[in-house]
């Protein structure tokens, strides 16, 4: 069972109280983008075996969107952080680097 702490209200939420929102930190390609960029934005997900950055919504609680960093093999949660960012905060990256040797943030 996945338990994530909502960074807005601090509640330790069960997975079933949350709504999943897919991969975080996507660059949105809008109307003037090329077909390849738009396809990548819509469909191409990294889905690595390992560290994921994800969007979640605290649907049964405060209703806010937030981000979570977790490992899909060990199921370890590295941390959660508010959604008003375009890249993971340094403390989350440090926590991942400490636990997953050799891991590099992909661009």
């Amino acid at each position: 069972m996945l338990i994530l702490s909502c960074p807005y209200c601090g509640v330790a939420c069960d997975e079933t109280e949350l709504q999943p929102g897919g991969e975080a930190h996507l660059t949105r390609f809008g109307p003037d983008a090329s077909d390849a960029d738009f396809e990548g934005y819509l469909f191409r997900r990294k889905n690595p075996r390992g560290v994921h950055f994800e969007r979640w919504r605290h649907a049964y609680g405060c209703g806010k969107w937030f981000h979570a960093a977790r490992h899909t093999v060990t199921l370890e949660v590295f941390g959660t952080y508010p959604a008003q960012v375009t890249e993971p905060p340094p403390d989350i990256l440090d926590a991942i680097a400490a636990k997953v040797p050799g891991w590099e943030p992909s661009s």
Binding site: T16, E17, Y60, G61
Partner: peptide, 10 residues
Amino acid sequence: VRRTRLAQVP
């Protein structure tokens, strides 16, 4: 106060 889920409803 705790907002949560009771079976299928908030």
